[in-house]
Simulated scan of single mutants.
Amino acid sequence: MTASRFPVLRLKPKANARAIRHGAPWVYDNELVLDRRSKNLAPGTIAVLEDTERKPMGLVAANPLSRITARMIERDVSVAIDQAWFAAKITRALQLRERLFDAPFYRLIHAEADGLPGLVVDRFDTALVVQPNAAWLELLLDPLCAALADVTGVTTILKNASGRTRALEGLDDENAVLLGQAPDAPIMVPMNGAFYAADLTGGQKTGLFYDQRPNHAFAARLCEGARVLDVFSHVGGFGLAALAGGATSALSVDGSAPALSLAEKGAAESGFSDRFNTRKGDAFDVLEALLKEGEKYDVVICDPPAFAPSKPKLDVGLRAYERLAKMAAPLVTEGGYLGLCSCSHAADLGKFRFACTRGIGRAERSGSLIHTGFAGPDHPLMPQLAESGYLKALFYRL
């Protein structure tokens, strides 16, 4: 495969070619000369990106249906995008994870930061869950999966098709078994002294959120002898980590009955059932009810879904984070701890911190910010892509 066999996309004169040369991975529709030919490219087509002087800048995955029309995947335009190419990328990613973790439970591929734009792969021992969030990955799914199996030695590969980006890229949702057989029961994942039940076929996203692992560990250090409230707990999140850290009790609150059922399975596997309870309901309603019931907790942690997933929803999302902090703060004992998390790409750390601190103040509480946490190292940050630094966790002592 040579460069001459690829179609060409060319930058407009006003496009920031320097940023792209320095590592920026995305090229938007308004930065490209999009004529009839380029607009008719099939989503996922590999193309050569050229600057205004027709000098090749690299290979990109093109999708005229997406505002991110080109994703940089390779600087060498003579390279073949095949199984061997995928294997080299996967091997490099695996080397990092094997250095970081003693057991094969982690995010193996984190999209642009691992050189594979739009791709998420989570590992659960001998099983991988692949989430291809860009059209080019759908077209090259066979060599990708062959490389994954060859490099890692796993026996099961599942495709999860629930990513928000899929809708933006015009992709149809379709989960599938790509290798082996789907597990017939949740996978028990050891983390921070507890076990988490991951449903790889029917759970949310890939089945478990590995990104909070270091924040779970930090929170656990605050929880010895503590009464803990874990809001938006998913499959046990902070609550199970708190019990592993010596909490006397943990109440997990979530709107999903299946998620709470998985949390109970994790508590049983961990030997925590006698200290673990769940409460199903809308988080804001439950917080209001607990306040009326006169409940107090030594540690309260809220880990909601993205309230501000995009810039148009930023203001509404920040108000939601402020409201959450305002409702959670009164439930914290004097000298206790409040943890507030955000996985919103659009809400940067400064805006999120301001909203949370304002909410605590509106609850007539005060305190110090003792720790700011981010995603674990198996979710590396691409420095040229601010959006990849999505997770923030703030811990206050009130």
Rank of each mutant, 00 (worst) to 15 (best):
D51R: 07
D51H: 11
D51V: 09
D51L: 08
T52Y: 02
E53V: 15
E53S: 14
K55L: 14
P56Y: 07
P56S: 13
M57S: 09
G58W: 03
G58S: 06
L59H: 00
L59N: 05
L59M: 09
V60Y: 13
N63D: 11
P64C: 14
P64G: 11
S66E: 10
S66T: 10
S66G: 07
S66N: 13
R67G: 13
T69C: 09
A70H: 01
A70G: 11
A70E: 11
M72S: 08
I73K: 02
I73Y: 00
I73V: 14
E74L: 09
E74W: 01
R75S: 14
R75A: 11
R75C: 10
D76F: 04
D76L: 10
S78C: 03
A80F: 04
A80Y: 01
A80L: 08
I81D: 08
I81H: 02
I81P: 00
D82A: 13
Q83D: 11
A84C: 08
W85M: 10
W85R: 06
A87F: 01
K89F: 03
K89S: 05
T91K: 10
R92G: 15
R92A: 13
R92E: 15
Q95E: 12
R97L: 12
R97F: 10
E98L: 14
E98H: 07
R99P: 00
F101V: 14
F101K: 04
D102L: 15
D102M: 11
P104C: 13
P104E: 07
F105M: 05
F105K: 03
L108H: 00
I109C: 01
I109P: 02
H110Q: 09
H110R: 08
H110W: 07
A111V: 06
A111S: 15
A111I: 01
E112G: 09
E112W: 01
E112F: 02
A113G: 10
D114G: 05
D114M: 09
G118L: 06
L119N: 06
L119I: 07
L119S: 09
L119H: 01
V120C: 06
V121W: 01
V121F: 00
V121K: 00
D122T: 04
D122Y: 00
D125E: 12
D125T: 04
L128K: 00
V130A: 05
V130T: 03
V130C: 05
P132Y: 10
P132N: 07
N133L: 13
A134P: 05
E138H: 13
L141M: 14
L141T: 02
P143A: 10
P143C: 14
P143Y: 05
C145P: 03
C145R: 07
C145Y: 02
L148G: 07
L148S: 02
A149C: 06
A149R: 11
D150Q: 12
D150N: 13
V151M: 08
V154Q: 03
T156L: 05
T156Q: 08
I157S: 08
K159F: 00
N160C: 14
A161K: 00
A161P: 02
S162V: 06
R164D: 14
R164M: 10
E169I: 06
E169M: 08
G170V: 15
L171T: 04
L171Q: 12
